[in-house]
Design a protein around this nucleic acid. Structure first.
Length: 288
DNA sequence: ACGTATAAGTCTACGAAAGG
DNA sequence: CCTTTCGTAGACTTATACGT
């Protein structure tokens, strides 16, 4: 084991005591790997344990890391990982130093807004048509649900016949659908759909596909079942990737449409943004 | 409004299978 | 065979919640 890997292992050992779920732990360990690599590359080869880390190193890390221009939020998260390690080994002074705050390091603020671009109408039509042609109607159905109901891919994948029928009724009734399964953080939400006709069409098409595919929208290319929600999501995204689209951009196109709808209904732009934020299931209105 | 902890979402490399 | 498409795993980035 090289000195660098020993250094990394010593950080990871501290992180291991910090708790958190698998995803969180993995994120922290990736930060440990990046940190040790960049430090040794920058010539700080005497570093052996987290107690050796000083402000100088944190600054150097930020500088080195910025070479691959990660998002500001990403860097803030990585620094948060490192600070929690420092605190854990008794270096509160470094972790909490004002001259080492995110602001002082030049990584404060940062947009908490999405940076996605809306899918164009042409792309949407081309790709859905392509899906039908290659006999993957489920993919087209999913994309339509994202586009016309503003669903996340995961939410669309969770949609079974019962859910789709309920949405059909809700669209007929008042155009407000409840999204219950597959939502981020498990928080249900309602969406006030403006273009009900397109939404209804998307839902009934999805129902047809569901019926043909044993109740699921995602099946493998040969028609066999996807084998679980997680796998279904991967299959969907792999397919989308191959076809050069980001499914989320369909959702963004929906957001734009909703925004226009609210504005034409007389909402101020501030209120319209809040309403759209609610439709998309974006928390309590902070950010975006 | 900010920092931090944690979760979710997205992209990509690669071997296997299918097509030609 | 050689090329393209698929599915998978996992690396990587970004969003959200929550306590100041």
């Amino acid at each position: 084991m090289s000195r660098r890997t020993e250094f990394q292992a010593s950080i990871v050992a501290v992180m291991a005591r910090l708790g958190g779920s698998r995803l969180t732990r993995e994120a922290r360990e990736r930060t440990a790997a990046k940190f040790s690599t960049l430090m040794y590359a920058a010539g700080y080869t005497h570093l052996a344990s987290p107690t050796d880390i000083s402000g100088k190193h944190l600054r150097a890390y930020v500088t080195a890391r910025q070479a691959d221009s990660p998002g500001v939020r990403t860097l803030q998260n990585e620094l948060a990982h490192l600070r929690s390690v420092l605190r854990s080994v008794g270096k509160q002074a470094v972790a909490g130093a004002p001259e080492l705050s995110n602001e002082a390091l030049g990584i404060s603020g940062g947009s908490r807004l999405g940076s996605k671009t809306a899918m164009s109408r042409e792309d949407f039509l081309t790709v859905t048509a392509h899906a039908e042609r290659q006999n993957r109607p489920g993919m087209a159905a999913l994309l339509r649900l994202e586009r016309h109901l503003g669903l996340r891919g995961n939410e669309a994948i969770h949609a079974r016949e019962d859910t789709l029928r309920r949405w059909e009724r809700e669209l007929q009734a008042d155009g407000r659908i409840s999204v219950l399964a597959g939502t981020k953080g498990g928080r249900p939400r309602t969406v006030d759909v403006f273009d009900r006709a397109s939404a209804s069409a998307a839902v009934s098409l999805a129902l047809v596909v569901c019926a043909k595919q044993g109740g699921f929208l995602v099946v493998r290319a040969n028609g066999s079942p996807a084998g679980g929600l997680k796998q279904a999501r991967r299959i969907y995204h792999s397919w989308a990737h191959r076809n050069g689209i980001q499914p989320h951009s369909a959702r963004y196109a929906f957001a734009r449409e909703q925004l226009d709808g609210y504005l034409s209904r007389g909402y101020s732009s501030r209120e319209a943004l809040m309403a759209v934020s609610h439709d998309l299931g974006h928390g309590d209105g902070r950010g975006r």
